[in-house]
Amino acid sequence: MSAALSSSRHLGKPAIQLLGVNKWYGQMHVLRNINLEIAEGERVVVCGPSGSGKSTMIRCINRLEEHQQGQIIVDGIELSDDLKSLDAIRREVGMVFQSFNLFPHLTILENCTLAPIWVRKMPKKEAEELAMEYLTRVRIPEQANKYPGQLSGGQQQRVAIARALCMKPKIMLFDEPTSALDPEMIKEVLDTMVMLADTGMTMICVTHEMGFARQVADRVVFMDRGEVVESNTPNELFGNPQTDRLKLFLSQILRGH
């Protein structure tokens, strides 16, 4: 597995490690013995049927959900009940949600500067310059003083990406960032993510966009019923599925397209 990785690009030391992670919702076992190591600068796409635990897994990485067994180590810090380490991790891990989750009562610029000012303690002016820089990169600087409700879905999701980037995270998590978008807006968001991938950011992205996976992913992880079933380069995983579960899944999403 790691041989396939290092063949494509040189990758650094581990950024995220999940070691024997288990999680239950009540009696339901939603993450089953997950072992996953993601290197610095690596781009991983996670796919799998709905309800297979993809969101739960990436939400455990910034502790929006708590795991009950095993270890999660992010940027060298183990996730625990210790609030200090939690703050440290959340500063370094950015997240983009399916439903954008912009703050509707704040302008686009305020959405982007709030966390740098209050969490990173950055001076306001500096934070605004930084925000404008990232808004320019996602190609919506002219919307800075509007409210989220005045933007299209694709624009809102690009703002959400810029907002996360303003914290200068080392790792970015994406949970189905294009699933809530109209077809004509999916491309503008994917383009933004490709651009981000080109900067060498460590990324974990839950998505069913196979084109995107083939273009940027170093590795694709297939999850089903709470387990990591297969993990391989995009070409190998899509072209040469090893398990019946993955074959079934691929036939289903291909039919859908």
Binding site: N62, L64, G94, M95, N101, F103, L114, A115, V119
Partner: peptide, 9 residues
């Protein structure tokens, strides 16, 4: 969740 993910206390 968005506020927490950004690291706000």
């Amino acid at each position: 969740e968005a506020a927490e993910a950004l690291g706000l206390s």
